[in-house]
Simulated scan of single mutants.
Amino acid sequence: MAVTLTEAAARHVSRYLSRRGKGVGVRLGVKTTGCSGMAYKLEYVDEVDASDLVFENHGIKVLVDPKSLAYLDGTELDFVREGLNEGFKFSNPNERDRCGCGESFRI
């Protein structure tokens, strides 16, 4: 089981943590919401919780709670620029459907 970061995502997280002056990485999880049922939640974290599963790519830690891992296994987190927009992009092989607005997904 694994969750990975691309080099672009790792660079973005590293720059952000450097500007913040603290942090150990990002926590990736899922929550029940939206028109398709689930949404990704992503936050910068300062400490590793005892229950966190830790995946490290390109020197950046990705923390995942055990309940979310079943939905996130195999996910690759990328940071992309498309025109004037930029943001994280989730490539999750477990997704079966995504809502039209792109905010939620179904497993």
Rank of each mutant, 00 (worst) to 15 (best):
S51G: 05
L5I: 03
T75W: 01
L72N: 02
F88S: 03
L84A: 15
G102M: 10
R11W: 04
C101L: 12
A50Q: 11
A70Q: 07
V13M: 11
D49E: 14
G21I: 10
L53N: 10
S104P: 00
G37H: 02
S104W: 02
G83A: 10
F55V: 09
R11D: 14
E43C: 10
D49H: 06
S104L: 03
G87W: 03
R15I: 14
K22Q: 08
M38E: 10
S18I: 08
L42R: 03
G74K: 05
K67M: 08
V3N: 01
A39H: 09
A9Q: 09
K41R: 13
D78C: 06
P66D: 15
D52Q: 02
E86C: 06
V3H: 01
K61H: 13
G25R: 02
K31N: 06
V48Y: 08
D65C: 03
V45P: 04
G100Q: 10
G21E: 11
G83H: 11
D52C: 00
L77C: 03
T33F: 09
Y44W: 05
G87Q: 08
D78A: 14
V54H: 07
K67L: 09
V45H: 05
V64W: 02
G37R: 00
R15W: 14
K31Q: 07
G87R: 04
L63Y: 09
P66V: 15
D97F: 15
R15F: 14
T6P: 00
I107N: 01
G23E: 11
V48I: 15
F79S: 07
N92G: 06
C101H: 03
